[in-house]
Design a protein around this nucleic acid. Structure first.
Length: 345
DNA sequence: AATAATGGCAACCGCGAAAGC
DNA sequence: TGCTTTCGCGGTTGCCATTAT
């Protein structure tokens, strides 16, 4: 449905150069008032379609139109946009002498950039850091959010207490920033670093979030929960790893140091085989041993072998569960190969 | 000085809803 | 009730001035 385009005749479609018609339009409106624009277009003899003539009148010729926007008006537009989105006509109604087109143009040319420079996403009106957090939560795994929030919290604490790791992460972030600048066309004055840090915010949160996102991404590329854990040790030592220290900082967990609550790294209970919860406690203790091995420097290969041995001695239910997990994950990566790509390097 | 790139602004146009016949 | 016309909205496009190379 809907009417056919009234301006389909491109031959008669003359962009700009309204000088001749403006005077005729104003004269006609002053004589007859505003009515049916199609009829007006025919009667006035102006070679424009009524629709364009109406737009010209509303946007440029109406006597009460203002020219420049005040800072207060800009602020109001931002607030309204945050509330109702790109409903330009409604926003324009709140501003005397403004048209929806003016508001829209102001937004697209000025306010969007202004918000971006302040570290705020102009679409969602959320800080970029939160957008990144949300990005980290996009994983499809039911437990992804829980896992990421936990990691993020712990990583923040680790960075705050360890300046050398902060420096290391800053280097990583700068590498990532360079990657952004070379692969994503950013305005010259708005590299991501300037953009993110322009709000006088300490970079720690963002750095930790980058690290956490990266960590989650890396973890997703490994084939077993054990591998995820050991990989975490290669990034942050065991004493500050999200796994081992989650108990000490979270408080709500009763696990002691070096114990791992695997449920945080597995799918939701609804996806667990019926007897997996019984196995989970054993697994926690046993993997705690692996953590100890990793912590005292005798880690990784031997510990992995040990854990393999431990896993191999477990009941068939848990091993089959792990196998089913691996199958599901492999299938997922086959179907969505982009998931296995590291977005940061 | 010439050319390219960029930004701002104004106009165009597709689409759906409402109104009219 | 269904078709046509008009209107409102918002995204897109084009033009022009300014800036960068």
């Amino acid at each position: 449905m809907g009417r056919p385009p009234c301006c389909s005749d491109k031959v008669n479609n003359r962009r700009c150069n309204w000088n001749d018609e403006d005077a005729n339009t104003s004269t006609f409106v002053s004589k007859h008032g505003i009515g049916n624009w199609a009829t007006m277009s025919k009667k006035s003899g102006i070679g424009r379609c009524g629709r364009n003539q109406k737009q010209r009148w509303n946007n440029r010729l109406k006597p009460d139109l203002k020219q420049d926007f005040t800072p207060q008006e800009e602020e109001l537009i931002i607030k309204l946009h945050a509330t109702i989105g790109s409903r330009w006509s409604i926003i324009a109604q709140q501003l005397a002498g403004r048209t929806d087109n003016d508001v829209k143009n102001l937004w697209n040319t000025k306010l969007k950039k202004k918000l971006s420079a302040m570290g705020i996403d102009p679409v969602t009106h959320k800080p970029f850091s939160q957008i990144l957090t949300d990005y980290g939560n996009i994983g499809g795994f039911p437990k992804a959010r829980t896992r990421f929030v936990s990691l993020n919290r712990e990583l923040k604490g680790a960075f705050m207490s360890r300046p050398e790791q902060l420096q290391q992460s800053l280097q990583k972030f700068q590498n990532f920033n360079r990657h952004c600048v070379t692969t994503i066309k950013l305005p010259k004055s708005e590299t991501s670093e300037e953009c993110f840090f322009s709000n006088n915010q300490a970079p720690v949160d963002l750095l930790s979030e980058f690290e956490a996102i990266k960590f989650v991404t890396e973890s997703s590329n490994y084939n077993s929960p054990k591998a995820i854990f050991l990989q975490s040790n290669s990034i942050i030592d065991c004493s500050s790893s999200p796994l081992s220290s989650s108990s000490s900082s979270a408080g709500s967990h009763s696990l002691t140091e070096n114990q791992v609550n695997w449920s945080d790294y597995l799918l939701d209970g609804a996806f667990l085989p019926p007897n997996i919860k019984d196995q989970e406690e054993k697994l926690t203790i046993e993997e705690g041993l692996v953590c100890s091995g990793a912590q005292d420097g005798s880690n990784n290969v031997s510990s992995m072998e040990d854990s393999d041995a431990l896993l191999s001695t477990k009941g068939t239910s848990s091993s089959s569960f792990v196998e089913s997990m691996l199958e599901c994950e492999n299938e997922m990566f086959l179907n969505f190969p982009g998931l296995s790509e590291d977005p940061f390097y």
